[in-house]
Nucleic acid binder design. Sequence first.
DNA 1: AAGTGGTCCAACCGCGATCGA
DNA 2: CTCGATCGCGGTTGGACCACT
Length: 300
Amino acid sequence: MGMGDRRSLRINKNMGDFENVDDDMDLRRGPWTVDEDFKLMSYISTHGEGRWNSLARCAGLKRTGKSCRLRWLNYLRPDVRRGNITLEEQLLILELHFRWGNRWSKIAQYLPGRTDNEIKNYWRTRVQKHAKQLRCDVNSKQFKDTMRYLWMPRLVERIQAASASPSTGSVAPSSCVTTPSDQFAMTSYDQGVNNTTSMAMDHLGLVNIPSGYVTPENSSVVAVSPASDLTEYHVGSEVGKIENCYNPDQNLEQSYLNWFENINGSVPSYSDSFWNTGSDEDFWLLEQQQQQQLLSYGSF
DNA sequence: AAGTGGTCCAACCGCGATCGA
DNA sequence: CTCGATCGCGGTTGGACCACT
């Protein structure tokens, strides 16, 4: 299985790069060229999207319809947003994954401009990696608890801290690097996206949102499954407050914090440089060091 | 400078669902 | 109803890039 099964690979000496061509259909595979992108965008801007196989032919692209669709949806679409996942988006991804599991396209509906592919990649490269480092299954109670009582509350705190501190402004991780040419577009776009993301978060019970927000399903109300693991964490949240979103059981959280304090020496605070690095790597580096304690701790 | 290993992401695949003739 | 075409989703992978040795 894999990408190379039914394709031949040859070097295009004129172009100086790889050209993957299907033996039978003379269809190109692999990375898209600028010319192909232009053809696809031009055709769609004139004729619209859909009917991808015929679109590919009519646009003069030696690609499968599938490939064209993927390229358009994940890369060329004007509203597609790529780059650093903001704190709010991270929180939303974690929250929605708790609720729906690997329903990437469904999750992507709540993150405007983000593709299911990008969210999936984020989950695999960041979240699953950390589960692996902790030597526990990503679906295990231990890992879920770690996210629920450590990672997610800290994300909330960092979001709050960022929004309360105009000087720090963006909630994007401080490790984010944007090129000067990116900055204008990203800044203006982020504002809109973060507003929308906040509304989505709020609609899921995390924060307050203006009335009239419509879910992807065009429903005025998001149906929250009573069986959801996280439902109970949201029902107590008040309008305009998110402090207690992940605080359904003070005793439970306190016991977790006590445990954290035991192995870390102090209770984590958003003011700690530890949480404020803007990179979850530090957090997980520490956790990696605490692997043995974690492994022996068990559930609480 | 060269080699190595890890990370990230674009693009692929298989497969089930849906559409429409 | 049937069946081929198309769409959409989730899983997987190749390779570019980067940090480290």
